[in-house]
Computed example of a mutant assay.
Amino acid sequence: MGVLQESAEWENGIYQIEQSDVVRGGDPQSGGVANWQAQQLANRTKYLYNNFNKRKAVTIKQVLANIQLTLPDIVDKDVVLDIASSGKTITVNTSGIIDGIIISFTALGANRNAAKIETGLPIEVTPDDEFKTDLWIHGGESFSAAYYGGKLYMISGNIHLENIGQVLYGYTPQSFCLPANGTIVNRADFPRLWMLVSKYANIVTDTQWLSGNGLNSGYFSSGNGTSTFRLPDLRGLFIRGLDAGRGIDLDRNSATFKDGSFQTDAIKKHKHQLDDIHPYGGFADVGGGFDGGGNNFKWRKNETFELGSYETRPQNIALTPYIRF
């Protein structure tokens, strides 16, 4: 009894046995159609076994400036990035890459510095493909991607590409988050956050952000206009759903109000019934008049005592606000 000769190669397609085929056993390369599919699948299995189970070499690349990598630098290797300086680009020459090749990158977590990985290939990473051509990796993150049919497909890792810009609250510092406290930060240090907020959020100049007694402090600012930007300051504030024309927040329901728009405190308009006419002699002489019927009376104009606190508020718990980057 013979056995199939397995070859560690990735078969791009599995043959479909047709009705017109003569079902014949034996060597698939010599007309044994019945064994052709099994041969192709065996080849794939051996290829995957070799690539997933063998111990890959580890290569460490320090990123102080822009660097270039070739296929020999990444094939069958776990590339460890020591990103010593943010904003640098790692260009990967993928010329000659074949289907089934897996590339892996891990960024050391000593800091949160970010580097851009350019492969010259579209990368299928998130459902909305925000990072199809601009993939940034921060210290502490890793990912693996498989090449197939002209694209790279993310298959594993802990790269945080979802929910960037999301506001979180916590008792402890939140992972891959910045405190939402109005701080100026470098665009190169947090490129993913700047990339998305500059595309979707309402950005004001830093002069506008700092003016108006905090009326613009819920927005991101453009910082110095080139290399920095400012975070919103959410400290001490509640979050309210943007009205966006629904008509509940009547003071802020036009299209001119964007995510991050500030609103001062207020009390809803209302009236009180006041009957405060007193017979003459009952109070200090602070003015008087006649009611038309000949009866003398006095007006009382005393102020009420102050009651309450510094603001109108519901019961609440204070937690530190953070923004995902």
Rank of each mutant, 00 (worst) to 15 (best):
A201I: 06
M1N: 07
L81N: 11
K258S: 10
N158W: 02
Y200H: 10
L64A: 10
N93H: 05
D276M: 09
G182D: 09
P191T: 07
N253A: 12
S217L: 04
G13I: 02
D128A: 09
G32A: 09
F229G: 05
K258V: 05
T304C: 09
E311G: 04
G214Y: 04
I184F: 07
R235T: 13
G292P: 06
W36K: 14
Y169C: 07
K88P: 03
G120E: 07
I203Q: 08
A188K: 11
K46V: 12
R252M: 12
R240Y: 01
N163D: 15
Q40V: 12
P232N: 04
F176E: 08
A266E: 15
C177R: 00
L108D: 09
L307G: 02
L178T: 03
T91P: 13
L215H: 11
V63Y: 03
S95L: 10
V79M: 03
L161Q: 07
V167P: 02
V197N: 12
Q166W: 10
A146S: 01
S217P: 00
T320P: 00
Y169D: 07
S86K: 08
V63S: 06
D233H: 08
H160I: 02
K61Y: 11
I137M: 12
L307M: 13
Q315F: 11
A107N: 07
G109Y: 05
S221F: 00
Q68H: 06
K258I: 08
N316K: 10
V63W: 05
Q29L: 11
S227H: 08
R240G: 10
K54H: 06
I184N: 08
D259L: 14
W36R: 13
L48G: 03
F325M: 07
M195Q: 14
L193D: 11
F131S: 02
D233W: 06
K54D: 12
S217F: 05
A8P: 05
D285V: 12
V92K: 02
K61S: 06
F52M: 13
G157A: 06
L234A: 08
